[in-house]
């Protein structure tokens, strides 16, 4: 319990010595898996619990400081107030910036859990891990975030182990995986990344978010809230770039994109985007199926 968990725990070691395999696959997936020449060898998993908080004070004077003292990411954009001096608490400038420290911490948590799962899979001689499920959950009110990655380790019947010894992985299982392979794609790994964009509102954004006219004297109706819309676009684009950087020329299949927004304090919010999918590589030529017959079911 005192040692740092860089190895498979004792209980898992015991589990893998037992004769029966465990598989998290549903029965239809299990059947499809046997049909395509994959033998399940065990249910593998990895964890990483991280302390999780939102740091950086709410004061305008501390804008742009990172708790790590490092630099921001690629994306940064700023806005200037068009009004001149109004009052001391007037937000004279605003900024959107990518919070690389959050993205890196997420990547570290996810990556560590993933690597531990791979270690388990390697220790039982797996060629690949299919039907991956990953969850990130906060445990109660403990200020911690748990990364949990699990899946079913498989061997390719009569097939070679992966060239670098590192099992390939995919979120897909069963018929979906069978169809992917039939379509000429080999799963390489999963790809996942988070982007985190902090939005420090400047006066115009603040007024528009509150539905107020921002030009003194002139009522301006229905203007676009440029700063927030840009943050939303950037969150998605940055996440896509991060995942693209993991592809190394392969393709991303079956991506899922989740965007969340949270207000940390007044005029200070975070837009976060999680993008995950299957990194796949083409191994044979494009060979389209015949057009399927449309069907109508009677039940």
């Amino acid at each position: 319990m005192t040692s740092v968990p860089d190895d498979v725990p004792e209980a898992a070691g015991r589990r893998f010595q037992s004769g029966a395999f465990t598989s998290g696959l549903t029965v239809p997936d299990f059947a499809a898996c046997l049909q395509m020449g994959l033998e399940p060898v065990g249910y593998v998993q990895g964890f990483c619990v991280m302390q999780w908080g939102w740091y950086g004070a709410g004061s305008p004077y501390l804008r742009g400081t990172t708790p790590y003292g490092g630099t921001h990411g690629q994306y940064s954009e700023s806005w200037r107030c068009p009004h001149g001096y109004v009052s001391a608490d007037h937000r004279t400038w605003g900024q959107n910036y990518e919070q690389a420290w959050v993205e890196n911490a997420w990547g570290q948590g996810f990556g560590t859990a993933y690597t531990r799962m791979i270690e388990e899979a390697t220790s039982i001689g797996a060629h690949g891990v299919i039907g991956l499920v990953d969850t990130t959950a906060s445990l109660g009110e403990m200020g911690v975030l748990e990364f949990h990655v699990r899946g079913t380790a498989v061997k390719v019947s009569g097939g070679p182990p992966p060239p670098d010894g590192r099992p390939w992985t995919t979120y897909l299982a069963g018929q979906r995986l069978a169809k992917l392979v039939e379509a000429g794609y080999m799963p390489i790994s999963i790809a996942a990344a988070v982007s985190s964009i902090r939005v420090w509102a400047y006066c115009v954004t603040e007024y528009l978010m509150e539905g107020r006219a921002y030009s003194w004297g002139a009522q301006v109706n229905g203007a676009e809230i440029d700063q927030v819309a840009k943050a939303h676009m950037a969150a998605r684009q940055v996440a896509r770039e991060h995942v693209r950087a993991q592809l190394h020329g392969d393709s991303l299949h079956g991506a899922a994109i989740v965007v969340s927004e949270r207000e940390l304090s007044e005029g200070d919010q975070v837009v976060e985007c999680t993008l995950r999918g299957n990194r796949v590589r083409r191994f044979k030529d494009f060979d389209p199926l015949a057009r399927p017959r449309p069907t109508l079911r009677l039940s």
């Binding site: 725990p9 037992s18 465990t22 249910y43 908080g53 708790p67 790590y68 997420w106 570290q108 748990e146």
Partner: peptide
């Protein structure tokens, strides 16, 4: 405080708890 870092004791505890549950299930299967 101030950093999102791993808490190895927590990781270990959750890992062990789940492994214990799974090992017991496996024993039944055996």
């Amino acid at each position: 405080t101030g950093q999102n870092v791993e808490l190895p004791n927590f990781t270990q505890a959750l890992y062990e708890a789940r492994e214990l549950a799974m090992t017991r299930m496996q024993d039944e299967a055996d």
